[in-house]
């Protein structure tokens, strides 16, 4: 007998989906963050070839809908002899997607550290790597935190696209329940609320960080 009214089991199923949304977001954040960090470093590299190659990577990924990346990975790889699970496909696609956007966000943050800071470190005989890791990156991290937390909201919402490759996260869990209950307004309202509950605190946090790190931008504006 199929339940025709929203019950505790449905809610439990939704919460389980929400948990997978969180897991998938975490994978995307950590994997995409690591790869994105590499992308950011390549984008500001001293080598023109590295800059161009990483720039092309960013352009290609940003110019492709996440949905299409998911299809490519999930449906495109098996004919080539590479079978991927829905979780693996969703994770890989999100990591690609996140790395391109995070890479660009962080490139901007690295470049917004005032040039005289590079120069001062250079004049203290520090190598390029030392300048980057001891002087520029610590300052870039402060600038980067608010937009990064803000982008995390995008990641969480975009994990809902993983439903198209059959991965049961929050949105897919809602679809499944709706297919049996035919209560789209109620079910999707609950889903919207659950997404909101995950994203809103992050948005607030991002806003707060932005206010607090405002000082990073109001220093050292004396020009020669």
């Amino acid at each position: 007998m199929i339940a025709t009214q929203l019950g505790a089991t449905h809610l439990q199923f939704l919460l389980q989906g929400a948990l997978w949304t969180v897991v998938l977001s975490a994978i995307a954040l950590v994997g995409g963050g690591l790869l994105g960090f590499l992308v950011a470093l390549c984008r500001v590299s001293g080598s023109r070839a590295v800059r161009l190659a990483s720039g092309a990577y960013v352009q290609v990924v940003q110019g492709t809908p996440l949905l299409v990346i998911m299809f490519l990975v999930f449906f495109g790889l098996p004919p080539l002899g590479l079978n991927v699970s829905p979780l693996a496909a969703a994770s890989a696609s999100l990591i690609l997607y996140v790395s391109a956007y995070m890479g660009e966000i962080w490139r901007g943050c690295i470049e917004s550290v005032p040039k005289p800071q590079w120069e001062a470190a250079e004049c203290l005989a520090m190598s390029r790597t030392q300048r980057m890791f001891h002087v520029v990156l610590p300052q870039a991290v402060r600038i980067a935190t608010p937009p990064t937390v803000g982008f995390l909201v995008q990641i969480i919402k975009n994990t809902s696209l993983a439903s198209v490759v059959g991965f049961v996260e929050l949105a897919r869990a809602g679809q499944i329940i709706n297919n049996s209950l035919f209560e789209p307004f109620l079910v999707y309202l609950i889903i919207a609320l659950l997404y909101f509950a995950m994203c809103y605190p992050l948005s607030r946090w991002s806003r707060r960080l932005e206010r607090r790190t405002g000082f990073a931008r109001r220093q050292q504006v004396v020009s020669p």
Binding site: A120, C123, A125, M126
Partner: peptide
């Protein structure tokens, strides 16, 4: 061999004065 001081100081804002001064002697 050459030390230079700029108009806009260019101290590293994320480090204390002591860390500012110790950074290059330690790393370089």
């Amino acid at each position: 061999d050459v030390g230079i001081v700029f108009q806009s100081y260019n101290l590293f804002p994320h480090l204390t004065i002591e860390e500012n001064i110790c950074l290059a002697p330690v790393t370089v």
